[in-house]
Computed example of a mutant assay.
Amino acid sequence: MEDNPDNINPTIQQVRDWGYNLDLNLTDQDEDLILYSVEYVAILMEMASDEDCPKNYYCLSILRNFSQELLAKRDLYSVKKIGQEIEKYAHTTANAVSKWIEEFLNLKNILQYPLEITEQEADSIARSLMRDESFSGTLRKLRTMESGFIEYEKISSYASYFYIDPCNSYWKLSRFFRLKDAEVIL
């Protein structure tokens, strides 16, 4: 594979070659987004767990960001597919990968089987789903709305708002705009 081939659909072997070669790129930019696919979960877990892989931290970052995006959007179909890939994965994982798996599976179960949660659990879910690798600020809890939803705000390059109902663990994400009670409930 050549450097910067603009390969938007790499094979597993091409992803493996990319992971072990610091000088190899899949595309000129946004190569992480190309790897936002369930088909790459196992190879990313493998490379993220290999301390000899020069892009191991980057691979874990891709897994975190991809799964976080799906969870935040409540894409249960894709979240279940990632869960299946995790269940099939038979190799040893690094501690950081194991922590990601544990957090992901916990959020998957909450998404799949809603339950009543405490305010501290709501805070934890908000932190998990609003975290990003480059964000060094803090997540602010703004208020509890009349509907019972708790509203959080994160400001990085733009504002994001996260809403969660502790009565049933239902959450909703809004980029750029704060939602009104009626908009959150829909």
Score class of each variant (00 low, 15 high):
L76H: 04
L105P: 00
I101T: 14
W171G: 03
L186T: 14
E102F: 08
F162Q: 08
N168E: 09
L35N: 08
D132F: 03
S98W: 01
V15K: 10
R74C: 12
K154N: 07
G19W: 03
P10M: 12
E87A: 14
A94G: 11
E39S: 13
S67K: 07
S128L: 10
G137N: 14
T93Q: 06
M145N: 08
P166K: 07
D32R: 13
V41I: 15
V38G: 04
M130W: 09
Y161L: 10
D28R: 14
R74Q: 12
T138Y: 10
E151C: 02
T93Y: 02
E85Y: 04
N4C: 12
K55D: 01
Y152K: 06
Y89V: 11
Q120W: 06
Q112T: 13
N109C: 06
L63R: 10
T92G: 07
Y158N: 11
F66I: 06
S136A: 14
Y20Q: 01
A90N: 14
Y36F: 09
L63C: 06
S78M: 11
I117Q: 04
T138P: 03
E31T: 02
M47V: 09
N95Q: 09
D50W: 02
N109E: 13
T138E: 15
N7G: 04
Q14W: 11
Q68K: 15
V97Y: 01
Y77H: 10
R127P: 00
R64S: 06
F104G: 04
Y77V: 12
L129V: 08
Q120S: 15
L22A: 03
Y36S: 02
N7F: 07
T118R: 05
T138C: 06
V41H: 09
P5W: 07
L26A: 01
